[in-house]
Amino acid sequence: MANYSIKELEALTGIKAHTIRIWEKRHNLISPERSETNIRTYSDKDLKQILNVSILYNQGFKISKIASLTQAELSSKIQDLANDVKPENEVFIDQLTICMVDLDEDKFEKTLSSCILKKGFEETVDNVIYPFLRKIGVLWLSNKINPVQEHFISNLVRQKMIVAIDGLHEPAEKEESIVLFLPENELHELGLLYFHYLVKKRGYKTYYLGQDVPFPDLKKVCDKINPDILISSVAYIGSEKKFIEYLAVVEETFKDKRIYMTGQPMFNKKDVIPVGITLFEKPSDLLNLLDQ
C-alpha cells in the first residue's frame, strides 16, 4: 500500500489541495493518517475515493450531494457517466488510474475497450491514454508505484496497440516506406507502436523493428530495404556524449533519408541535435512532417 502527500493527491486527481482539505474536514470523505508533526499522508483507499468523487464533482455534482452517497451509489453514478454516448475523457482517465492502483486487469480492459468503442482509437490514445500515462509518471517519479504496476499498465496498453495495428488490413498505398525503431537499450515502446499505427493507417509501407535495436542491425535492414523515412523515440539517453555521437552516426549514415525523432531528452538537448534529424513533439506533428 502506498502513502501519498496531498500534493501528489492533487496531481493525480486534479483537485486542489485546499479543496481536498475542505472535503476532508467538512464532509469526512477521507481520513488521512497524520504524523507526529501533523503532516497528512493518504492511502490507496483515499486516492481512489478522491478520484471517484472528482469524477462526479467535475461533471457538476454538488459536493454535499456526493458526500451523502453510499459507496454503491457512488459507483453506480460513475458507471452511468461512463455509459453515456460520449463520456468526458477525465471519467476514463480516473477509472484507469483506479484500475492501476487495484491491479484490476478485467476492469482496465473493459474500461479501455469501452473508451475505444465510444471515441475511436486515435482519440482514446491522444486524449485518454497519454494523459493517463502522464499521471502514472507522477506516481513513478515519486516511487508510489512499483515495477509490477508499471509493467501491468504498459503491457495492457501495448496489447491494445498491437491489436489496433493488426486490424489495419489495407495494403500500402504510398510509395514511401518507413522504418520504426528504438535505439539500443531503449525499451519504452508505447509511443513507437502508436506511430506505427498512425503511419500504417495512412498508407505507408512500414517495417517495425521495435525495442533495443543495435545500430549495425538497423544499418543492415536499411541497406536491404532502402526506406525513405526513419522514425524513432528516446526516453533515456544515458551518457550525453555517447548519445550525441550516436545521433551523428545516424545522421551521416542515413543522410539521404528523412529522420524523425521524438522524446523529452531530445528536446532537452535540441541545441546539439544534428541538423539532419528533425524533432517532433506530438503525433500530430509527425503527421504534419510526413505531409510536407
Results as ranks from 00 to 15, higher is better:
residue 227 P to W: 01
residue 292 Q to M: 12
residue 279 L to I: 01
residue 140 W to R: 08
residue 52 N to W: 00
residue 60 G to P: 08
residue 149 Q to E: 10
residue 284 S to G: 05
residue 80 D to V: 13
residue 115 C to F: 09
residue 112 L to T: 05
residue 81 L to F: 13
residue 250 V to T: 10
residue 168 L to D: 04
residue 161 M to Y: 15
residue 54 S to I: 07
residue 89 N to L: 00
residue 164 A to N: 05
residue 45 K to T: 14
residue 131 P to R: 07
residue 98 I to V: 13
residue 12 L to G: 07
residue 270 K to T: 02
residue 52 N to D: 12
residue 105 E to F: 08
residue 45 K to L: 13
residue 162 I to N: 09
residue 291 D to T: 15
residue 82 A to C: 04
residue 94 D to I: 06
residue 257 K to F: 01
residue 221 V to F: 08
residue 222 C to M: 06
residue 256 D to M: 01
residue 98 I to A: 05
residue 115 C to N: 08
residue 7 K to F: 00
residue 277 I to L: 08
residue 286 L to F: 03
residue 105 E to M: 10
residue 83 N to Q: 15
residue 49 Q to M: 15
residue 121 F to Y: 15
residue 64 S to M: 09
residue 10 E to Y: 05
residue 54 S to F: 05
residue 236 Y to A: 14
residue 188 H to D: 02
residue 76 S to D: 14
residue 60 G to K: 09
residue 56 L to F: 08
residue 42 Y to A: 04
residue 28 N to E: 14
residue 232 S to V: 09
residue 119 K to W: 10
residue 222 C to D: 11
residue 173 E to R: 14
residue 114 S to E: 07
residue 139 L to G: 12
residue 195 F to S: 10
residue 82 A to I: 11
residue 9 L to A: 07
residue 132 F to H: 02
residue 74 L to Y: 04
residue 259 I to M: 00
residue 199 V to R: 01
